[in-house]
Every structure is written in structure tokens, then in C-alpha cells.
Write a protein that binds this DNA or RNA. Structure first.
Lengths: 191, 191
DNA sequence: GTCTATAGGCAGATAGAC
DNA sequence: GTCTATCTGCCTATAGAC
């Protein structure tokens, strides 16, 4: 039986490294130093680096799925749901990091196929949830928006991913995501 | 005197590699094979990899500057200018690549300071040009948009950068940038 | 300007002791 | 589960011949 605690520590440290430096720019040595074990021990939990990458995306996608369920359960309005969704990214921006999925996506061509597919699945999950939420808001006359829900959903996801990347490069004193939220809600006719 | 032709070939090949695979995911060996020389010869033109990166961003930023001058000279309307600007990215999407600046930005934390600054400068150039163009369009009553020009400019850049990254991951059959353009122009009240 | 040869270090990964 | 030891290969970079 694997030691779940070490595996979790490895995933936590690896996630931070990928979100800060990128999948190709961190090594098992970096990870070993973060967690306080030797590189050879990491291979016990994740035989190859690709296995670690797949486990990261799996956990991240499950986390998103749970967060979306939470939002659907708790939020009072479709506008509130979308704001809660955007908040998931705002927290990442505050850490000066980028989305795990966005980080993998920017290294896409260097990734094994399973990992590429995991990236696509994460995007699809996000996009369909946003589109459904927009549709619901339009149907309930909460948003004045007229147009394809899929289109604004794509736009939102693109601007969140790009916003995180540009925000970090511009500096912590000029956050972009509040602006993304403002413009997006205005576009929806929900401002 | 350096052989300008080889240096240009190296920059061309390196730019493609960065836009496809990322700065940390290509090597002098890859580059040498692309151009048909030995890795040691690359060091004659670009002593360290960072020098190559800086030269890439310098050339890319100068290219943008020239493209913006061209657009300002030729376009008939502010809407036309913005469409020409977006077209610069559409061509990148068609190649299945991402923006050179976006690629560097996603690896930001692993870059030397000069390169980080070059990334920030490229973003600032783009953003201020878009904001100025939006302002002009609002002033000339071409756009119905009311709000901060800087905000929509940030939004557009974020969605273009993020759009390229997500588009590649979703697959060539579902381009995102036409959608980005449509939603953006609608937001501007220019559709 | 480009080459061969080589340095020195780090990458991911495996074998086998404990 | 974690360790030491080790492998093989690739990385950036340099020295010096041509």
C-alpha cells in the first residue's frame, strides 16, 4: 500500500511548481527538495514524470468538478455562480501563479497524449458549465445577453487563462481578473 | 562581422520552436538540426540561450511596432484597425501555435530579468495601442461603448493570448479567435 | 563562421539494500 | 517506502583547429 500522505505532499508540491514554473521547468530534484525525500523515492509513487502529470490533472479536474457542484448547490443566482467561478481564478492570480491547466496547455506539444487529453477534458468541463449557467441566466431573464452561450463561455475561459498569464507578467500591483469580471458581466447584460 | 543570414535563420527557427514547444522545451540541438549547423556554431551568434531569447523578443516587438504603424496608416476605421490587430493572432492560431510573448509569459518565472522586462514591454505596447484605438473610436462615435478603454484593451489581449492557448488544446477544428473577435466587437458596440 | 572535441552538470529512471 | 549508487543521455557552454 502506498503512503497516501507522501503522495499527497508530492502532488501539492508538484502542482505549485507547475503553476509557477511549468511542467518542463521543474525536476524530480526540485520536487524532492520541496518534500524532503530523495528523487528515487518519488519514482515509487509516480514511476515516470508523465504519471505525475496525469495524476495532477486528474486531481485538479476532480477538484473543479466538486467546486462546480458546490457552487450549483450554494449560489443564489446565475450571476452569483459565475462570480464564484471567476473567484476560483482570482485566488490563483493573488498567488502570482497561473492555472494548472493553462500551464500544461501552454506546453501542450511537449506532453504525452494522455496528458493532452486531460487538458482538453478540463477545458470542456469548464466551458460547458459556464455555457449552461449563461443559458440558465438568459432563460430566467437574469441576463439581457442575446447570442450564443458557448461563445461567451469560450471568451470567459480564454480571458481568464490569458489574464492570469498576462497579470503575472505585468506585476502584482495591476491585477487583471477584476477587470475581466467587470467586462464579462457587462457583456452578459448582468452588470 | 556576423553572418546575418545564419542569425536570421536561427531566429526564425527558434521563434517557431518557442511558439510551438516553449522556451524551456527546445534545445540548441533542436535548433542546430533545424538550421543545419552544429550547436557550437549557434554560440557564435548567440553566446547564451538568454541572448537568443532577448533577440527573439526584440525582433518580435519591433515587428509588432511596424505592424501597428502599418495598420494606423492603412485602415479606414477604428473597427478596421482592431480587426487587423486581431488578424495578427488569427494567423498564429491557423498555424497551431501560440504568441511568442504568451509563450515566454507562461514560462515567466524561469526567465532572466531582461527577458521578463521584454515580455512586459510587449504587453504594454499592445495594450496601449488597443486602448488608444478604442478611445478614438468612442470619440468619433464609431463605438457605442461606455467604460474604460484600458479595461476592454486588457480584456482583448487576455482573451487573445488565452484563446490561442486553449484553441490549440481543443483542436484545429474549433478555432476560438473568430469568436473572440465577434464577442469583443459586440462589447464595443461595434458589431 | 563553422567545425570537432570535450567539459561539467543535470535530467529521468532503475537496481537492489535496508 | 525510502535509501544509496549508478546508468545513460541530454543540456548549455567553452577551447581551439580550420
Amino acid at each position: 500500500m502506498k503512503n497516501a500522505e507522501t503522495a499527497t505532499q508530492l502532488l501539492d508540491a508538484a502542482q505549485q511548481l507547475v503553476q509557477e514554473r511549468g511542467y518542463n521547468a521543474f525536476s524530480y530534484k526540485d520536487l524532492a527538495e520541496s518534500v524532503g525525500i530523495r528523487t528515487a523515492s518519488i519514482h515509487y509513487h509516480f514511476p515516470a514524470k508523465a504519471d505525475l502529470g496525469v495524476a495532477l490533472m486528474k486531481r485538479y479536474t476532480e477538484g473543479l468538478s466538486e467546486a462546480l457542484n458546490s457552487i450549483d448547490r450554494d449560489a443564489r443566482s446565475n450571476k452569483g455562480k459565475l462570480k464564484s467561478f471567476i473567484k476560483l481564478y482570482t485566488e490563483t492570480e493573488a498567488r502570482g501563479a497561473i492555472c494548472l491547466c493553462g500551464s500544461f496547455a501552454s506546453d501542450l506539444e511537449t506532453l504525452p497524449a494522455v496528458l493532452q487529453e486531460a487538458v482538453a477534458a478540463y477545458i470542456e468541463l469548464s466551458e460547458s458549465w459556464v455555457a449552461d449557467t449563461v443559458k440558465a441566466g438568459v432563460g430566467e431573464a437574469e441576463f439581457g445577453f442575446s447570442g450564443k452561450a458557448r461563445d461567451v463561455a469560450s471568451m470567459l475561459l480564454s480571458s481568464l487563462q490569458g489574464g492570469l498569464i498576462l497579470s503575472r507578467a505585468r506585476g502584482a500591483d495591476q491585477p487583471l481578473l477584476p477587470t475581466v469580471q467587470r467586462v464579462f458581466l457587462k457583456t452578459l447584460g448582468a452588470a
